[in-house]
């Protein structure tokens, strides 16, 4: 499949990245981190990662989408560094311990509440995404990575298995754990629940 000339030229010519994608990526980062110099740093880190990986860009998505996907991982990495004390890796061990979500009979130990989210409301979207990124940063890295690829980039699980070098069953388990942790985190942090 021939890809549109301009798009291909866009990624294949890194000297044009700043002019073509710089502002968009910067705004995207700024929406999450709220600090101009950090946003600029994240754009820079994204460009560096993109330089190293640009052979992998096959025009399956637009250049902007491809770069944005890299940026999302960088944003989550940044938040993770900010919130996690270097010595603690509590969440990793938590998943091995007994399941916090269900009792011995497999019934909910804390019942899921009713979320009141209006998907059409931009402000609520923004708030929701802020909390979601924060919750993503609290996940073990591998789980966050799998989740971002699946739900944010919309990749198939086959593709994710290839990229992360895992089996299909593994990917389902990882995504399940990621979703369970995220919903718990979102419920605790933001979404007032009616029981």
């Amino acid at each position: 499949m021939p890809k549109p000339k301009t798009e291909a030229a866009g990624i294949e010519n890194p000297e044009s990245w700043v002019d073509n994608y710089g502002d968009f990526l910067y705004r995207f980062a700024l929406a999450r981190v709220k600090d101009q110099s950090i946003a600029e740093d994240l754009v820079q880190e994204t460009f560096l990662a993109a330089l190293r990986a640009r052979e992998n860009f096959q025009g399956q998505s637009t250049g902007r989408t491809w770069l944005t996907a890299i940026l999302k991982h960088k944003i989550v990495d940044h938040i993770r560094k900010k919130i996690r004390e270097p010595s603690t890796d509590k969440i990793e061990t938590l998943t091995d311990a007994s399941d916090p979500d269900f009792d011995d009979r497999g019934e909910w130990s804390i019942r899921p509440g009713k979320w009141v989210v209006n998907p059409g409301n931009l402000y609520e979207q923004k708030e929701f995404l802020d909390v979601l990124y924060h919750c993503l940063a609290e996940l073990p890295e591998r789980l966050a990575e799998a989740f971002i690829k699946r739900e944010m980039e919309g990749l198939s699980t086959e593709k994710i298995c290839k990229e992360l070098g895992i089996t299909a069953t593994n990917s389902w388990v990882m995504l399940y754990r990621a979703r369970m942790s995220l919903r718990r985190c979102l419920e605790n942090r933001w979404l007032s629940a009616e029981t």
Binding site: W115, Q125, L129, E151, M152, R183
Partner: peptide, 11 residues
């Protein structure tokens, strides 16, 4: 589904 919709919406 809400989590999925919000994640994709941004995309």
């Amino acid at each position: 589904e809400t989590i999925r919709a919000a994640s994709r919406y941004e995309q």
